[in-house]
């Protein structure tokens, strides 16, 4: 993989040999992941494989059973509560549902993290809010309530809130799911331009192969409780693993079988008849 090819890669986030359980269900068995600084990293995999879990591990909301989660030189699972909260000011997360606060207007949502963590006077905060809303194209919608926004607008408003404090890392949880093609296009454009103009490091969790492969610099694929492949998108498209190819090409049958495990079809039918 490509950091083994000798390129000097500066990683903002690094997971090493991470094991994680939900109760008795094993989610990860020895996951390794590198997120290069200043790049767009995509994490892909089928639903329920633990993509959101990965983001929560990086954000310190969940702790691994064992293994290391490194963010800019800090061991996230070992931080105290105060240190963790301090570190979280440097990252932000765009949740699947947007998670705008329903009791505040769009502007107040964007102003919220600024008012929480800085002592800036209100006029300056208002100016910053306008700039952030302008960046996502919603400056005119500042006075609206979250329930007055369409799905795509809500996600863009949440994005404006996520970049309010100019974080180093931004994590997008399925930003394209449930979006019409137009807002999908807008979000793709936004993610790319934010990454370039602000020098952000981005992690995109998604299973929309086309959009994601289009903007990602680095792709990791999760399957069978592990990262089965990671590298630049081109390198993955002709990866030796059949599983990776099946996923990236969206083939209905392959190493992940179309049929759920069952006994012989003919026997089953005959058994009913007899």
């Amino acid at each position: 993989m490509y950091d083994q090819k000798g390129c000097t890669v500066d990683n903002l986030v690094e997971l090493k040999d991470v094991y994680f359980n939900r109760g008795n269900t094993v989610i990860y068995e020895g996951v390794n992941l590198q997120v290069p600084r200043g790049k767009i990293t995509a994490i892909m995999g089928p639903s329920g494989c633990g993509k959101t879990t990965m983001l929560r591990l990086i954000g310190g909301q969940l702790k691994p059973r064992s293994g290391s989660v490194d963010f800019a030189g800090h061991q996230v699972p070992e931080l105290s509560r105060g240190e963790l909260y301090e570190l979280r000011k440097r990252m932000s997360m765009l949740f699947q549902s947007g998670a705008l606060f329903t009791d505040m207007s769009v502007s107040d949502n964007v102003a919220f993290p600024i008012l929480e963590h800085t002592k800036l006077p209100r006029e300056i905060v208002d100016t910053i809010v306008k700039m952030k809303l302008q960046a996502v194209g919603l400056r005119g919608a500042g006075g609206l309530q979250p329930d007055e926004l369409s799905g795509g607008m809500a996600r863009r408003a949440a994005l404006a809130r996520a970049i309010a404090l100019d974080p180093e890392l931004i994590m997008y949880d399925e930003p394209f799911t449930g979006q019409d093609p137009i807002s999908m296009g807008m979000i793709v454009k936004l993610i790319r331009s934010l990454n370039q103009t602000l020098g952000l490091t981005s992690i995109i969790v998604s299973h929309d192969i086309h959009e994601t492969m289009g903007i990602a610099d680095h792709v990791a694929i999760i399957a069978n409780k592990q990262v089965v492949a990671q590298g630049p998108p081109q390198a993955l498209l002709d990866h030796e693993s059949a599983l990776v190819r099946q996923f990236l090409n969206g083939e209905p049958d392959g190493p992940v079988p179309f049929h759920y495990q069952a006994n012989n079809y003919l026997d089953d039918l005959m058994a009913r008849g007899g």
Binding site: R56, Q61, K89, M93, T102
Partner: peptide
């Protein structure tokens, strides 16, 4: 509802 719509998680991730 705040938990279901990830508003609580979102607060945590904003260090609140």
């Amino acid at each position: 509802l705040m938990r279901a719509t990830e508003q609580l998680s979102s607060l945590e991730m904003m260090a609140v």
